[in-house]
Computed example of a mutant assay.
Amino acid sequence: MKRYLATTAALALVSGPAMASGLDRTGQPIGIIFEEGNYAEFSFATTSVDLSGNDRTTLNPLGSATGDVGERFNMFGAGYKRDLNEQLSFALIFDQPWGVDVNYPTTGSLLLGGTTAQADSNAITALLRYKFNERFSVHGGIRYQEIDGEINLQGGAYTSIGGVYNVKVNKEGAFGWVAGVAYEIPEIALRAALTYSSEIEHDFNLNETFATGATASTSTQTKTPQSVNLDFQTGIAKDTLLFGGVRWAEHSVTDLVVPGLSTLAGRSVDLIDLDDSFTYTLGIGRSFNENWSGSLAFIYADVDGDDLVSPLAPTHGYEAIRLGVRYKQDNMTISAGIRYTQLGDAVASPGGNPVTNFQDNDAVSFGLKVGYNF
């Protein structure tokens, strides 16, 4: 059972969230801090998103189809963990926690065609873990993240601002912190870990371009959400593990108020409209022999509020199934996973005005992780 304990996090996370609530992509995992001994890993995941809808006929009698607005995106990750002594260990984690890739074809929706949104992030988390004894430990550290992006608004839904608007969000970095506690019973592979991640506030410089061709250099403050992750696992039979987790994220604090466009519109214009969410995971892992293990997990994201969403993130919750497999030989571990996500139906509603329905959409993710104990 102990042999399986250290591999479960890799199996559970290898295929990563395909498109989580809001802009959330990785769930900010810290499981590497619980790996046995000294350890390093590298991971890659790719997600293909099938995301399409139709204009509401009350606004567009043709009910124009949007075409596929979901762009494929890739994610990279890495981690390093080292034992400093019998009680203290250190981990360094790289992930890409937040992102969006949406592109409405100009030949599709009459109301949103030409609208695009792209945002990327990179984060490095430095953690320390202190073990009081075999069962109790605490962990915590700092997180530094950088974010940049670009949004282009176009189509009939934006006639009030001239039908075209662009804003570039210049890259900016900021710090946050992480703290948590864990309880373990190694004899039955039981571990429960509670981790809090603080919100991180960014001061972005913006470059706004309006329909007239006029430009403005402005700035705004934006927060990424605070979150709480509860992860657990326990042995339930020989070489068999039950695992799961709950993640809460306060996405409602994330906004993008654009000063130049707000002045033009005569009101505060927020381009991001997200709701808080809970994401639940439950799965089972099985060690088949000394080399091979596998896992199966179900994921459900429950999002607050109604199904009126920003056109830049036109989904509302999701359900997913994830299959992972792991091969271990000597000190090397190779994990792979596939995940199918059924995206929740939503109504794209710029400024709170429902314009386009999104239904029956999904995404498929593939992931690969290589780990090495030394």
Rank of each mutant, 00 (worst) to 15 (best):
D231N: 12
G235Y: 08
G235I: 10
A249S: 14
D255Y: 06
S268W: 01
T220L: 08
A216S: 15
Q221H: 10
R267Y: 03
S262C: 07
S217A: 15
T254Q: 00
V257D: 04
S268A: 14
D239S: 12
F243Q: 07
G244P: 07
R247I: 15
E250K: 10
D255A: 12
G235E: 08
P259M: 08
S262P: 02
R267K: 09
N229G: 10
G260T: 03
V258W: 00
Q226D: 13
Q233M: 09
D231A: 15
R247Q: 14
A216Q: 10
T220P: 04
T222K: 03
Q226V: 11
G235Q: 07
F243H: 11
L264Y: 06
Q226K: 10
Q221I: 09
F243K: 09
A216M: 11
R247Y: 06
G266E: 01
T224N: 00
G260E: 06
F243A: 12
W248R: 05
A211C: 06
F232T: 03
T209R: 10
E250R: 04
A237F: 10
V257A: 13
T218N: 14
V246A: 12
V228R: 02
V258H: 00
E208Q: 11
Q226F: 11
P225R: 01
A265F: 06
K223T: 00
V258R: 00
L261A: 04
A214S: 13
V258D: 01
G213Y: 08
I236R: 08
A265L: 12
V246G: 05
T212G: 13
S252L: 03
V246K: 01
G213S: 11
K238V: 15
A265W: 01
T263N: 07
P259E: 07
L256A: 09
T220C: 13
S252V: 04
N229R: 13
L261E: 02
L230C: 13
T263C: 04
T222C: 09
W248G: 04
G235H: 02
N229V: 13
I236K: 05
S227Q: 06
R247S: 13
G245R: 02
A216T: 11
S268I: 11
L264F: 10
L242I: 08
T212S: 13
T215E: 14
I236L: 13
P225F: 03
F210H: 08
T234W: 05
T224L: 00
Q221T: 08
E250W: 02
Q226S: 14
R267A: 14
S217I: 15
T209V: 15
Q221F: 08
T240D: 03
S217V: 15
V253R: 00
T240M: 15
G266Q: 01
T220I: 12
S227A: 10
P225C: 06
L242W: 07
